[in-house]
């Protein structure tokens, strides 16, 4: 197998998981590069060495695709994509960030859970408070209704706060990821030769 096929194969396997058209598009770029190199009289081995490490290229292309999706569409799936993509970049100081990140995400999740439960509980209790007295509740119906409403509102704002915080956190991660793209240096693809 020659260097061109080996490079393209490693690039393609590194891009696994991206949408099919995106992969084909990227591969076409690099095929064109090899073709142009041949036309300029360079050997495939020479071009492959000058291009750099295909796995590293794939990681960067994947991370960028993840960040893009988040910017186009704010969803839980695309937020996960950002996190996975940034981790895939495997920057060294990630070891410092990782424990902090895990701590923040866990706390956030706990708050989100409390908010959702309060929201549901309040919403569930409110109609009952209007039609009947709660057993064991000391106040009258109005108090019960206001209390339910309060729990509902508190839960909703806590949930909203968590969502906003998550969006801010992922945006920070995007900036962190972009700051960690590296120049891919030539000739670091020694594994191509074996």
């Amino acid at each position: 197998m020659n260097e061109r096929d080996s490079f393209l194969r490693r690039l393609r396997s590194g891009l696994w998981g991206l949408p099919r058209p995106a992969i084909d598009d990227i591969i076409a770029d690099y095929e064109g590069h090899f073709d142009a190199g041949r036309a300029a009289g360079r050997s495939d081995a020479d071009v492959a060495t000058a291009l750099g490490d295909p796995s590293r290229l794939a990681r960067e292309l994947r991370a960028e695709a993840g960040l893009r999706r988040w910017e186009d569409e704010r969803s839980l799936a695309s937020a996960l994509g950002v996190i996975v993509g940034v981790i895939g970049l495997a920057a060294l100081d990630l070891f410092v960030i990782m424990p902090v990140l895990i701590g923040i995400v866990t706390t956030l999740f706990a708050f989100l859970l409390v908010g959702l439960v309060a929201c549901l509980g309040g919403g569930f209790a409110l109609p009952f408070a209007l039609v009947t007295n709660f057993p064991g509740f000391m106040g009258d119906r109005l108090q019960a209704a206001l209390l339910s409403l309060g729990v509902l509102g508190g839960g909703a704002s806590l949930t909203a706060f968590c969502v906003l915080f998550t969006i801010g956190l992922v945006n920070l991660l995007v900036r962190y990821g972009r700051a960690h793209y590296r120049l891919i240096t030539a000739g670091s693809n020694s594994r191509l030769r074996d």
Partner: peptide
Amino acid sequence: SYGYDIASRLSAAIDMGEGTIYPLMRR
């Protein structure tokens, strides 16, 4: 210009891997 041309002109001047150009162009 096309990718190969940009990459080969810049890699000589800036000393970078030619592959770097494609993620950048995409962005």
